[in-house]
Computed example of a mutant assay.
Amino acid sequence: MPSLSHSQREVLMAELGSLRRFCLSLSGTPADADDLLQATVERILEKGMPEDADAAKWAYRVCRNAWIDELRSREVRQRYPLQMAWDTDEAPSAEDDADLERALEAVSVALNALPPEQRMALSLVAVEGKSYAEAADILEVPVGTIMSRIARARATLLKNRDTPD
């Protein structure tokens, strides 16, 4: 059974908070983010990683790949929709909570409207604080590609913000 070195486990544990935020930025919902984080960690623990791999970068790559797999699965499931009952009884208890919820929803909707490549690049740099070079390494693309994806994402977000509903 593959295993991680002690140092890789420590790096992975230290990166979990940032990795969860990345999952949330990709998925848009806390429940999906938790599922994506769990899938990511499970894959890493099941399959291990090369001894010379940077554990943090490896985890982001595994996460990205798990999200792509999930999107593909959702596409297949949408072809054969199932009826589901959603619990809508969760109401905020205060006006501030409601305002925050609306603001977070607006951000989530705006991010989810971006193409996945732009959303991942923007999330790594703007949310997680990764450098362009680190994001490029994680997503396995040139730095210039990261720069153009982020520029297009920001332009789209600004354009959509200024467009009346």
Rank of each mutant, 00 (worst) to 15 (best):
E140C: 11
E95H: 11
D137T: 15
E101V: 00
G144N: 15
W86S: 06
E140F: 09
Y80E: 03
A85R: 05
M84F: 01
I146P: 03
Q83C: 00
A98V: 08
D89A: 04
S123Y: 03
V125I: 11
L114I: 09
D87G: 00
R77E: 12
V107D: 08
Y132P: 01
L114V: 04
T145H: 05
E134N: 02
A59L: 09
E95Y: 14
R102Y: 14
Q118G: 05
G129K: 12
A121S: 06
A113H: 14
I68H: 15
A113F: 04
I68W: 01
R77H: 03
R77P: 00
A94M: 04
E105L: 13
L104P: 01
A91W: 06
N112H: 15
A136F: 09
G129Q: 15
W58Q: 06
A55D: 07
L111V: 04
A85G: 00
K130S: 14
E75V: 02
A59R: 09
I138R: 05
R61I: 03
S108R: 15
E95G: 04
E105D: 12
D99R: 13
D137G: 13
G129I: 11
L114S: 05
A59E: 10
R74Y: 11
V109P: 02
V127H: 12
A121F: 00
E95K: 13
T145M: 06
R77W: 09
A56S: 15
N112I: 06
M84V: 05
A98H: 11
V125W: 11
T145N: 10
W58A: 05
E134A: 04
C63P: 09
L71W: 06
A110S: 15
L100M: 09
A66L: 10
D69F: 10
M84N: 02
W67M: 08
R77V: 00
G129M: 11
G129F: 13
K57G: 14
L82Q: 02
M147I: 08
E75F: 08
R79N: 07
V76C: 00
L71D: 04
R77G: 00
L122Q: 07
V76W: 08
A126W: 15
N65S: 10
